[in-house]
């Protein structure tokens, strides 16, 4: 009971020294193999080939790289908007139906979530390639005469990325919708509001925390998305992530890769810093 005697100590808490010992392994692991590699990138960006900001000048001064950066932001924004528009109705239905129906929807949302991104990107290739299912079907029913080029287009990357990120948006919104007490809808209805008025004045405003959280999360993940654009995108749909990958393993221009990474990292950190509070990582939705 000596701990309890400590002035001001939380009687049920660990001492600072014990706390430190407990957290030390995690911190050591992260500092060595996570922080060090990331600072290594920063180091590369200003020291390769020699100490200067030349890599940043190259990255930010180039029309091509700026175009890729803008495309990445634009594509991420579109994916986010699409995920919101497609995801909200599902979350709404999920929060309203009960029992078995809810389970069915949950399974439909979770199965893709638990399926590897690679498998899902592959599935899109199976569907969309020249001799893929979509082209075959369209040819067979005579809508088209020659196979369409569906892969390696921006729209395809967008749809496939939305497909991957949609479950996250749905679960984020659903987590909040679920917590809205049912009697609020009943009260609105009793007070004279029809279905749409109830949604507009009560459900929608109360679901906004989930919307914000979903939007920020999807946007941030989309910014750094690699696998899907790398497999489904072509040269004209190059994104920041695929560009960074190329510079790292193909061009071996680690200085530029470092600068581009730092720019992407800074963009993400800026967003998290500005809006991070809406992420609700501790919330019930998680």
């Amino acid at each position: 009971m000596a701990v309890i005697a400590n002035a001001g100590a939380n009687p049920k808490g660990f001492s600072p020294r014990l706390s430190l010992v407990l957290i030390a392994p995690a911190m050591a692991l992260l500092v060595l193999f996570f922080v060090l590699p990331l600072t290594g990138l920063l180091d590369q960006s200003v020291r390769s080939p020699d100490l200067s900001i030349a890599n940043y000048v190259r990255a930010l001064g180039s029309d091509l790289y700026m175009k890729i950066l803008l495309r990445t932001v634009w594509l991420s924004a579109m994916v986010t908007a699409l995920a919101l528009v497609l995801g909200y109705p599902v979350a709404l239905t999920m929060s309203r139906v009960s029992g078995r129906m809810q389970l069915v929807i949950a399974v439909c949302v979770l199965v893709p979530l638990w399926t590897s991104v690679l498998v899902r990107s592959y599935a899109w290739i199976v569907l969309l390639q020249r001799r893929g299912i979509v082209n075959d079907t369209l040819l067979q029913i005579g809508v088209i005469d020659a196979p369409l080029r569906l892969l390696y287009r921006e729209g395809t990357v967008m749809v496939a990325m939305t497909h991957v990120l949609l479950p996250f948006m749905i679960l984020s919104i659903y987590g909040v919708l679920r917590s809205i007490p049912r009697d609020l809808s009943m009260a609105a209805s009793n007070l004279g509001a029809g279905g749409f008025a109830t949604f507009r004045h009560v459900i929608w405003p109360l679901s906004l925390p989930g919307v914000y959280s979903g939007v920020l999360m999807v946007f941030i993940i989309a910014l750094g998305f690699y696998i899907t654009p790398a497999l489904l995108g072509g040269p004209e749909t190059l994104m920041m992530s695929t560009l960074i990958g190329q510079q790292t393993t193909e061009t071996l221009d680690w200085g530029l890769a470092g600068a581009l990474s730092v720019i992407l990292l800074a963009l993400t950190l800026l967003l998290v810093g500005l809006f991070g509070r809406v992420l609700r990582l501790e919330g019930k939705g998680i």
Binding site: P181, D183, L184, M186, A187, A188, N190, H201, V202, L206
Partner: peptide, 10 residues
């Protein structure tokens, strides 16, 4: 008019 058990205030 209706008053709910847990008030249901918005």
């Amino acid at each position: 008019g209706m008053v709910f058990q847990r008030y249901a205030l918005f």
